[in-house]
């Protein structure tokens, strides 16, 4: 069963000179135990898509289903990790992680225990009473991660979570995100990652949905069945990267070709 179904979704924004189509005819599923990545060039509406799925915004046309129910308004059961962390500077790390639980109306003792658990699994002990501006970028994104995981979402939405970090830190954090993902004790059931970094998508995800340039549409769905941890220098990895790359560059110039290759989303060569 599909956890999330994005069904023929269009999104356009009105401007002074008519409306601008951000994405067109987007269709794909997020299944149980799926680590799905959405890649595409900047401006293809990947982040907007994530916001539509979360229910922060509504599609112009089409429907998004979460557990077979149309998403109308902000959906429970999903939690977002933001590109620039979106931590509240006036709340301590503990309070930031407790943020979502407070909104759910948990009693304070339960919140305390839950926060402690997720502070611990993300390696944040020692920073509980710190304020976001005191800690490094890598630690900040761990807080973003802990905050999202603490509400035990079924789907974790990640919006370019590593792109505000320096490359080494991003490399370290990617590894730890995978470690958390592999832990069966921990939520979520599925991850939806939005990124402009093709290598990152292939390194992390089980499947990659490739979007074209604006107006974004699905060029292909690529299954990544390389064993983890994935070696970025292996020929198979390289080939996949190359394929996604050429899909995007060609799809951008010849827009119609993209939809044709939609059904091809099968096995990699």
């Amino acid at each position: 069963m599909a956890l999330i179904r994005v069904d023929h979704v269009d999104k356009s924004f009105p401007t002074r000179h008519g409306s601008i189509a951000i994405m067109q005819e987007i269709t794909f599923d997020v299944r149980d135990a799926d680590f799905l990545a959405i890649v595409g060039p900047s401006g293809c509406g990947k982040s907007s898509l994530l916001r539509l799925i979360q229910g922060l915004d509504r599609p112009t046309r089409g429907t998004i289903y979460f557990r077979d129910r149309p998403v109308e308004g902000v959906a429970r059961g999903m939690a977002m990790v933001f590109q620039n962390f979106a931590l509240f500077p006036w709340l301590t790390i503990n309070q930031n992680v407790a943020f979502g639980l407070e909104a759910l109306g948990w009693p304070p003792e339960k919140i305390g225990a839950q926060v402690e658990r997720y502070i611990s699994v993300t390696g944040l002990e020692g920073f509980e009473e710190a304020y976001p501006r005191e800690i490094s970028g890598g630690m900040r994104q761990r807080v973003g991660l802990a905050r999202a995981l603490a509400v035990e979402p079924e789907v974790l939405l990640m919006d370019e979570p590593f792109s505000a970090l320096d490359p080494l830190t991003a490399e370290g954090l990617r590894e730890e995100v995978l470690q958390l993902w592999r832990d069966p004790q921990l939520p979520p059931e599925a991850v939806l990652l939005v990124t402009h970094n093709i290598e990152e998508a292939i390194q992390l995800a089980d499947r990659v949905v490739v979007l074209s340039r604006r107006p974004g549409h699905v060029l292909a769905e690529v299954v990544i069945d390389l064993p983890r941890p994935r070696d970025r220098k292996s020929p198979a990895f390289y080939e996949l990267t190359d394929r996604v790359y050429s899909l995007i560059t060609e799809g951008g110039t010849v827009a119609s070709q993209g939809t044709a290759s939609n059904g091809e989303g099968g096995r990699p060569g």
Partner: peptide, 12 residues
């Protein structure tokens, strides 16, 4: 660097 950065180096 930071702990995460160091880890990144080791992962690399």
């Amino acid at each position: 660097g930071s702990p995460t950065e160091l880890l990144g180096l080791l992962v690399l």
